[in-house]
């Protein structure tokens, strides 16, 4: 099929759980190197932890994929790899189009900068030319609902304000793919509704969305497909119409 925009191929992510504390100073690093050179094997071996294990998924244009799963199942790790924040240990992801990511609260905002300055910084980071941001600045401010605080450093913002502004920027940069990690849960009901409506309109214009959410109601409203991740593996996937959500609810 040629309408696939994201092709996740056997992606795995390994973390080392060191029981000894990690060398974070030159001294401890030198010591561990010296130990290794002296074949001093009394150091406990690092335990491996696979946050993601052999995940394969394909996402088509216009799809809204919701990742579900318990805390620590690897959903956010997958989004981080997709957003290029961390690299996969194995496997690869192929992407067509520009991704705009909203990961966690305060996504990529600089606390010392004002809201206005952060809009430009964030826009540039999402690959949007400044001239375009300038054009849409009023729309962004209006959508965020924090106009009054645009000249206040964002460190004074509440987490709700943070998210509203961050979402407003991401929504206006013309990305082809939106990656959203649970952030919308921070906003109030009114703002959540606004975002949902906004996402729905965008989905109709051909944008692709990947989201992590624990809000099953939100998922039922906007998602078209579900991927259930458990223990770093793809447990089940299907359309929102299938009974995956019901079974997930029962667990």
């Amino acid at each position: 099929m040629n309408d696939i925009v994201i092709d996740i191929e056997q992606v795995s992510k390994r973390y080392a759980l060191s029981h000894q504390h990690r060398p974070d100073s030159l001294k401890s690093w030198l010591r561990s190197m010296a130990n290794r050179l002296a074949r001093n094997d009394d150091q406990p071996k690092d335990e491996e932890f696979w946050a993601l294990n052999d995940i394969s998924l394909q996402i088509r244009q216009g799809e809204c994929l919701a990742l579900i799963g318990k805390n620590g199942s690897g959903k956010s790790t997958l989004l981080k790899i997709l957003s290029r924040i961390i690299p996969p240990t194995r496997g690869q992801i192929r992407v067509r189009g520009r991704i705009a990511s909203l990961l966690e609260v305060g996504t990529g905002f600089h606390p010392e900068l004002t809201g206005r300055e952060n809009v430009f910084l964030n826009g540039a980071m999402l690959g949007c030319p400044e001239r375009l941001i300038r054009q849409r600045f009023d729309a962004i401010a209006d959508f965020s609902g924090v106009e009054r605080f645009l000249d206040t450093p964002v460190k004074h913002y509440s987490s709700g304000m943070y998210v509203r502004l961050a979402y407003a920027v991401a929504a206006h940069v013309n990305a082809d793919i939106l990656v959203i990690d649970e952030v919308l849960a921070v906003g109030d009901a009114e703002f959540q509704k606004k975002c949902m409506e906004h996402l729905q309109t965008h989905l109709r214009t051909g944008i692709t969305v990947i989201m992590v959410s624990h809000n099953l109601h939100a998922i039922r409203t906007i998602a078209s497909n579900i991927a259930w991740i458990q223990g770093g593996q793809l447990f089940e996937s299907g359309t929102v119409g299938s009974d995956i959500l019901q079974r997930f609810e029962q667990t």
Partner: peptide, 20 residues
């Protein structure tokens, strides 16, 4: 009130690979 991008998404043909 919802702003709608006038340009609807045209998916570029070039693939980008994210790997380690």
């Amino acid at each position: 009130m919802t702003p709608i991008d006038t340009t609807s998404a045209v998916i570029p043909h070039s693939w980008r690979t994210i790997d380690g």
